[in-house]
Design a binder for these strands. Structure first.
Length: 278
RNA sequence: GCCUUGGUAGCUCAGAUGGUAGAGCAGUAGACUGAAAAUCUACGUGUCGGUGGUUCGAUUCCGCCCCAAGGCA
């Protein structure tokens, strides 16, 4: 979400001061009305990474979700671009009576393994799986096998801060309050004034969708703040679940330590792994 | 002070002609291959306000008490 312009407060996009002279890439490169995807992210990130490496530096990927991290550090080829018409047709099937079951059965017929891994209620993934099969003529397993033969993925070292859950949640609650004081509501107003459609990916962002509901009078501002805090806590938990399951992740204790101290530890671990960092 | 209606899971509530209770939300855990700050899945023991009584058995019926809201004085 930091890729979108005009969402600096709500996405905690680093300020000039916070960047401290270190070059940051791919921030504020998208119009909030644009849609985006993990594959598009991969396509945009690779040239940047190559450029940094050509200069003899080590790129640092910061933030984001597990899928986006894996888009660069795992052999994920991603099928072909989605076909909007097909996607809508499948969605129409899903919306009909018993549609979810019908859709899931259809996937089972063409890609049983993939179907077995998806719950029929996870309509978004079922649609994508059918779409990917129709566009490539291959099952997910076959596509993954092809991906594994491909070059071009990065062997990253993954670090994640390890906070006690209570501390993590307190920090989240506090940060949301801070965002409100820094002008998150005004930022939301500006996006709406700029005509960003409610259906845009950017409008799904935590902090924005809740304040829009408050703006429309469905909930109070206080309720919106509570929902933003809750949504952020849940999001953080989902990230934790993702990274717990990734054996590559090295957890770095964060409680009662300064950012500098944590950074120093990560740097030491990098050197142990044979990297040199300036 | 009297009357009425309530007091059941963290919250809002449902329910059992007496056989120790269940939904939504919250919470917790998990999944995730071109929407990912998205999407999806699983998980429900709590002195049924307190205390006496009736009963084989009471949270359910009866008495008294406490608390809350409304009404009458």
């Amino acid at each position: 979400m930091q890729l979108y312009r005009g969402m600096d407060v709500g996405t905690a996009t680093p300020t000039e001061a916070e960047m401290g002279g270190v070059a940051h890439h791919l921030l504020n490169i998208l119009d909030p009305s644009e849609s985006f995807s993990a594959a598009a992210y991969r396509a945009r990130a690779i040239p940047v990474i190559e450029d940094i490496r050509a200069r003899g530096r080590i790129p640092v990927l910061c933030g984001g979700t597990g899928l986006y991290v894996n888009a660069l550090t795992r052999p994920l080829g991603f099928a072909e671009p989605g076909d909007e018409a097909l996607r809508q047709a499948l969605q129409a099937v899903a919306d009909g009576p018993g549609g979810r079951r019908i859709l899931h059965d259809r996937l089972r017929a063409i890609d049983p393994d993939r179907a077995a891994r998806l719950h029929e209620n996870d309509v978004r993934r079922v649609i994508r799986a059918i779409e990917a099969h129709q566009l490539t003529g291959r099952t997910a397993g076959e596509r993954a096998a092809l991906d594994r033969e491909r070059e071009g993925d990065y062997r990253g070292l993954l670090f994640a801060p390890d906070w006690p859950r209570a501390t993590l949640y307190e920090r989240i609650d506090r940060r949301v309050m801070e965002m409100m004081h820094l002008g998150l509501p005004a930022e939301v107003d500006a996006l709406i004034a700029a005509g960003v459609p409610m259906t845009a990916t950017a409008m799904q962002a935590i902090g924005y969708k809740e304040l829009i509901r408050a703006r429309e009078g469905f909930i109070t501002l206080d309720e919106a703040v509570g929902l933003i805090q809750q949504g952020t806590r849940r999001y953080a938990k989902r990230q934790l679940t993702w990274f717990y399951a990734d054996p590559r992740v090295q957890w770095v204790p964060a409680e009662e330590r300064s950012a500098q101290d944590i950074a120093r530890e990560i740097k030491e671990r990098l050197q142990v792994n044979g990297h040199s960092v300036g």
